[in-house]
Design a protein around this nucleic acid. Structure first.
Lengths: 193, 193, 193, 193
DNA sequence: GATGAATGAGAGTTCATTCAT
DNA sequence: AATGAATGAACTCTCATTCAT
């Protein structure tokens, strides 16, 4: 049964990012990943229970690290506004500097079946949770309107950032993704106030 | 069953919405669509060149009608604010009343290969175009800030609405999608002003 | 049931020679033949019972005319040697001047199933019969050896001519097929004497 | 089943001869070959790129062995006449003792598309080459006429033998193919002299 | 007789997954 | 733990043939 650690575990995950990003989830064969990782096809199944498991593990890995590091950066902020700015900045900066990861997150991850989304939802929910915490904090700090519906506001915030990333991924990337931080932050902060 | 010429085209398209929505694009066999449509497998290939073509035609069909009707509604509005409100309202109302179409648009459509996205991009771009026109109009009418980057603003607006729809589709739909119009509009309008 | 006459019967047969020659029997669709003939797909089935029937009818048509005309030419000959020369000449001249027919005869006709060969065998047998008659005549006229096995001799004669045609069809046809009459006749006549 | 590496390649080839000979190339399904070989359908595609590849590999295999063994036999001959006799004898003996192989060579092999013929031409050409060498040798040894066109003579020789085999394959085989060696050789040798 | 839209059986090929070594 | 040959279920698409008009 799927070992979740070991050096090869990570090697396969790295190979998967590359191949998924290059060819897309459905076009990538397990043997492609194995080849890229320099292991035998069967070895993949020692570390992952199936192909979908690789994609989900990939996302969970990335997302956990993402949220963890983001929480660290947020701990240095003094108020909700700074935190929101940090969220947008970190999100755009991280994916902007890792196009392969961005492609997997924005495109490939959405190619899997409904039921599997559960594996994706969990780590994503912790990010949603984080954003909602910041909005709540902003309301407590009287920075944002009291009547603001936190959940809806979170959707707007996340949706805005997410769309900006998707557009960048789908484009030929003629601009720096991080450069969009200012206008996006500006728009969202005014919306919340 | 399909008496008039050309009727089968639509029958197959309707069947495709149902089956894609029910089972997802990759899990749907062409024979499932044919069965749902009450035609033979081969008949599908008289009207569509392949499975992907069905999905793309589906989206183009829906999106063209969507943009067309939306433009009609917008023609009744007096200013950019009313238009923005109409866009959000129409978007949420339309998809909120057609969960199957919403599922296809939000989920299944994103499951196809990169190159095929071209077929999707075109009709989507006309919607993006529409939103940008409204934002530009708002700037001209001095309703929105002059320094607003129209393209980025459009991404934020579309991303916000889109995320709201996606969350609803993924949920067990315990609320009316259209009910989110107010808070979303409120947030976005403040962001633009 | 397949009507064996009518103007369209011949139109379809002519279209079949072209398409079979161009694309090969298995690569040719019935709709290709219909298209080339300028009739509807279904019309083909008024005149022929199925696709194989077209190929067989084609061959029978060609072969009957071939043997008939050849017999006429032979009637002008005075002895077996002249007749053999005429056979070789006529065979090479006829196929050499109709590359499409040659292609169908040499290549496409051999692409059909065993049991169907019966339809091909019959008209071919009358050609074999003709050759054997000439050899027998040659023996009677003391032109050829008495101990000659007529059947085997016929196989050698036909095989030689047939191979010469096949090589020409498969080649880019940089020479006139009829030019091979002399050396082929020379070889065979010496073999028979 | 298939213990030693590479053994399956031959097992599949052997199964292919049987099934092609029994049902014909087009009537044989890949799963029939796999079944006859006692392997899974997919296994066939590990060793061959597609169905056509099986037929071509089959022929190349047989033909290479054929020419190789024939060359060995020819090395024992003292002059062109003996060699020509050996060629005819070996050709008829080999195919006469392996009716399945003969059927594939004479009938099924000619059922494939033009472009694929390239795969067939090469090994066949080496046989043609061999025959031409012998004819040339006969001319040098003053056994055959100097003015003989070697290429045409080769076509006559090969065509004669080939036709004899084809007739035998198509018949119910009431005679020994090898028994035709004498009359065929007799006819051809006189033609060449 | 003619049409051509509709049919649906059919088959080649792929590839995730397994398991003997 | 690692391998990679073998598996076989799965699925798209083609096209000869039919038949209502």
């Amino acid at each position: 049964m799927a070992r979740r650690s070991g050096e090869k575990h990570q090697v396969i995950l790295d190979a998967a990012i590359k191949t998924f990003s290059r060819s897309g989830y459905h076009r990538t064969r397990v043997s492609d990943i194995a080849g890229e990782a320099g292991v035998a096809d069967g070895t993949v199944y020692i570390y992952f229970s199936n192909k979908e498991d690789i994609l989900i593990s990939l996302f969970q890995n990335l997302m956990n690290r993402f949220v963890e590091e983001l929480r660290t950066e947020l701990s240095r902020c003094r108020n909700a506004n700074e935190k929101l700015e940090t969220i947008i900045d970190y999100h755009l900066r991280t994916l902007g500097s890792r196009p392969e990861q961005a492609r997997v997150t924005q495109i490939e991850l959405r190619q899997i079946d409904q039921k599997i989304n559960e594996g994706i939802s969990k780590p994503l929910l912790s990010y949603f949770q984080l954003i909602e915490e910041v909005i709540e904090e902003g309301k407590k700090q009287a920075l944002y309107r009291q009547e603001l519906n936190t959940r809806t506001a979170r959707k707007v915030v996340f949706g805005a950032i997410d769309e900006v990333v998707t557009c960048w991924v789908m484009s030929s990337k003629p601009y720096q993704l991080a450069d969009l931080k200012e206008p996006v932050f500006d728009l969202l902060i005014r919306g919340l106030q």
